[in-house]
Structures are given as structure tokens and as C-alpha cells.
Design a binder for these strands. Structure first.
Lengths: 115, 115
DNA sequence: GTAACCTACAACCAAATGGTTGTAGATAAC
DNA sequence: GTTATCTACAACCATTTGGTTGTAGGTTAC
């Protein structure tokens, strides 16, 4: 049995892009990049229930794109720039392949295969 | 009423990231970046039916990430670099926002420490 | 203390997703 | 011409997703 509470890299990238595939979640990312917004504050601006926004934040959190910090009774959401950069790196790998940068590619492959 | 058979930008980005949120599809992208592979050729290497791979290619195609070119009885798949770049641009917007915040912060820090 | 607010989480539901098998149409090979 | 190959697409199924409402616990305000 594979230990899958320690997700592998593929699963992590899956979650990253899945989290980014929803306009509400991308908007939450944008707004939370500015500073710490509470979940209910975020929820005010979307045409859906508080619980729905809470779920969107949870998806972003599982993807590592945001983290939450408790302050009093509210939970402040802030985006994690490292995760955004990881997503970009995944796209870079695809783009590099297209450009035929085989040299950089083999380096990256080594990385990915853990060799 | 919004004309929505002409998908707006959000919908397009949704499809882009959704297409990227699956490891099989990312692998197809990687392999199709090298050159034109037929769908059945692609399908050989995945532990699923031909129809399943066909669906994955369709998802990539709807996202604009690949295009198909008929050659004889086979359909050659090749990745569209422009779409990959569009996805990166969406991430760049998020990252820019964050970087903007950091720049402002370092500015403030500079002021405080330097003045 | 009580009321109001913020969050967590469960239960439920419709729709989308990711897979399957099966059928059918074109093209290539023999 | 027949057969094999490649693709398209429909129908079906289990699971996930994205939304809802409802309940409960913690924190702040009065």
C-alpha cells in the first residue's frame, strides 16, 4: 500500500491546477494576495452561501495556495506565493519542452524522477 | 442575457486549468509537444481504454491546449504553445499582485530603515 | 450573562467528471 | 473486396464537485 496521506508530486500538481480552475477561487486568490481577509469578509462579495465560499477556501488550502491564520473569532486568509510559483514551474516544464530546450529538460526530468 | 456560446475569458481560463489538473493530460501535453502523435499511439502508454484517452485529448482540445490534424486515418495531436502561455499569464497576474504587495512592503521598510 | 458574529462541519442534492463497453464510419493493408 | 486499424460517439455507471440548509462551538460586544 502506498502511503497516500503524503501525496506525491502529481497529486499535488493536480490539486494546484484544480484549485485554479474556478473563477471564484481565482478571485479569492487575488483578493487574499493583498492582505489578510476573513472568510466572511470574502464571502460577502460572491453570489453564494458562506458555506460555499468556505469550501472554496478549503480547496485552495488543500492545494497549498492559501493559508489561514486565526485572529480572534475570525480566520484570515492569505495566499501563499510559493504555491503560485510551483504552478508556474509546472507550466514552464511544458513550455520548455515545446521550445525544444532538451538540455534544461533532462535536468528537470532528473529532478522529477528523484534521481 | 450574456451570450455564452462565445465563452468569456473566465470560462476559457477555467477550461485551461481544468485541463491541466490531470496527470494523464499533462503527460499527453508533454508528449505531444515533441511532435505529432496519433491518438492511438498516445493511448498505448496509459492504463485505460482508447476511448478514455480520446476524452482526455478532447478536454485538452476544448481548452485550446492541443489541436488535431488529420493525416490519413490517424489524427495527429500537437500542443498549442500559445495556450500554455495564456495559462502562465493568468498565474502571472496573481503573482504580480503578490509581488506588488511585497514591493510596497519593502518600500516601506526602506523608508523606515533608511530615513 | 446574553446576544450577535465567525467558523466548522454534516447531510443532502444536481450536475459534471472519468472511466467503461459497444457501435459505426473512414482509411490503409493485403 | 475483405480485413484490420484508427477514430468518433453514444449510453451507461460510480465518484467527485459545487452548491444548499441546518446544527453546533467559540469569540466578541453589550
Amino acid at each position: 500500500m502506498v502511503v497516500d496521506n503524503v501525496p506525491n508530486e502529481d497529486e499535488h500538481v493536480n490539486r494546484l491546477f484544480h484549485a485554479l480552475s474556478d473563477a471564484t477561487r481565482r478571485d479569492i486568490l487575488h483578493r487574499s494576495a493583498e492582505g489578510g481577509l476573513s472568510v466572511s469578509r470574502l464571502a460577502e462579495d460572491y453570489p453564494m452561501s458562506f458555506a460555499a465560499v468556505q469550501k472554496h477556501v478549503a480547496v485552495l488550502e488543500r492545494a497549498g495556495l492559501v493559508s489561514k491564520e486565526r485572529r480572534g473569532r475570525e480566520q484570515l486568509v492569505r495566499t501563499e506565493p510559493d504555491a503560485v510559483r510551483r504552478a508556474r514551474a509546472a507550466l514552464d516544464r511544458i513550455e520548455d519542452l515545446w521550445r525544444g530546450r532538451v538540455d534544461r529538460m533532462s535536468l528537470i526530468l532528473d529532478e522529477e524522477l528523484g534521481a
